[in-house]
Amino acid sequence: MPHFAKTLFIINPKSGRQNKLNIQDLIRKHLPEDSFDIVETEFAGHATELARQGAKDGFRVVAAVGGDGTVNEVARGLLGTRAALAIIPKGSGNGLARHLNIPLEVPAALDLFHNSTFSRIDTCTINGHPFFCTAGFGFDGYISSIFARNARRGLRSYVELILKEFTKFKPGKATVQLNHENFETDCFVLTFANASQYGNNAYIAPMADIRDGLLDVCLIRELSLQKAMAVSYGLLTKKIATSGHAEFFKTQEITAQTKEQMPFHADGEYVGEACEFHVQIKPLSLEVLIPAS
């Protein structure tokens, strides 16, 4: 990175991991005092406002200090600006940070400011809502809607919720249009991937390239308990594409309709319900700070 480009750190004080760390003291320890400002979020959506204002105020880099939700909010505020996104991971999933090889420990992520470079990545929207890793509907959207109301956070709570709700969820029908083709399908999961993973090294689209201008679409039509175990193994070993239980497509744009409204997520965060989904990719539309190597 050019010598300590002026950086705005946006901290989500409620993010799940490493809450005992004094993030502000660590920032002051790792960077020259005149090279940054620090603000904290106060409500949902606040990080987007702060990031957008930071870009207007001339900050070259705006750093999201938090989990995937905070990263999504900050990145949304930087779209269409000249500011670059940096990530200090402090969540449980850290999907975009992992894809970009950002160190997961806060001190190591701050050390990155001494040896980094700028790069551009694709961004996407689902029904107009920006996302940077994955979005989708089906079982993952259903889980996101329940998890949003869950007082307990973290990976363990998420896994417990999946195990509890798996047998309750019934796949619906969807009509899908992509690459000038239409087809109807059962739909347990329909995931739109810009990056390779959900987070926690769960690779839903291990072949995804965040700079190729294409969405990687993963369709799982139906899933018995036995198949779910095979898919879970595939997620953790990057072998889901060869598991025989998932289908993959590459496209720049996709539309899907369902008969009933279904919950959907963007970067793991519950967005709402819809019965029509329009997903697009915007090539190389966000600048990010990544390791120089």
Rank of each mutant, 00 (worst) to 15 (best):
L85Y: 01
E260I: 04
A151N: 02
I204D: 01
A109Y: 02
L190A: 02
C133G: 01
F132P: 00
T191G: 13
L215S: 05
S157G: 13
T258P: 14
P103H: 07
S35W: 00
P206M: 03
R152C: 05
T175I: 13
A151W: 05
A86I: 07
L26W: 00
P171L: 06
T7C: 13
Q18Y: 10
Y203L: 07
R28W: 03
A241Q: 09
G172K: 02
V288L: 11
E276T: 14
N12Y: 01
V62Y: 09
P103K: 02
L223D: 02
E222Q: 14
F139V: 13
I10L: 05
K173T: 14
N182E: 14
A193Q: 06
R120E: 15
G45Y: 09
T167S: 14
G45A: 04
P32Y: 01
M1H: 10
N101P: 05
T185C: 06
G172L: 07
V74H: 08
P103T: 00
Y233W: 15
H180D: 15
I210D: 08
K164Q: 15
P13Y: 00
G213L: 13
R76T: 15
L21Q: 02
L110I: 13
T167N: 09
N179R: 00
F139K: 08
F166N: 10
Y198T: 12
F9E: 06
K239L: 12
G272P: 01
T237M: 12
P89N: 06
A256I: 10
A174M: 11
V159L: 15
S224M: 12
T175H: 13
Y198R: 13
H245Y: 15
L163K: 09
D111F: 10
A246H: 09
R82F: 00
L155G: 01
S224E: 04
L8E: 07
I220K: 05
F147P: 11
L236K: 11
L78A: 02
K282H: 15
Q197M: 06
Q24I: 11
R60Y: 05
A64S: 11
G154A: 10
A47Q: 04
E276P: 02
K282F: 15
G80N: 10
T255L: 02
V159H: 04
T134Y: 09
Q24S: 12
V288N: 07
G141Q: 07
L104D: 03
M207G: 11
P206F: 01
L112T: 10
S224R: 10
V74F: 02
R28Y: 04
F147D: 09
A202F: 14
A292Q: 12
L225S: 06
I88H: 03
K90F: 06
G77P: 03
F147Q: 05
I11Q: 01
M207P: 05
E181T: 02
M229E: 01
A241M: 09
V271G: 01
L50F: 04
D209S: 09
A108L: 14
K173L: 12
F36K: 10
V106G: 03
K164N: 13
S224V: 08
G16N: 09
E273Y: 08
G234S: 07
H180T: 01
E273N: 14
I87H: 04
D57S: 14
C133E: 10
Y158A: 10
R149G: 12
T251L: 08
S144C: 02
R98H: 12
T251G: 08
V65G: 07
I10M: 07
L190R: 05
A174H: 13
L219K: 08
A86F: 04
P2K: 01
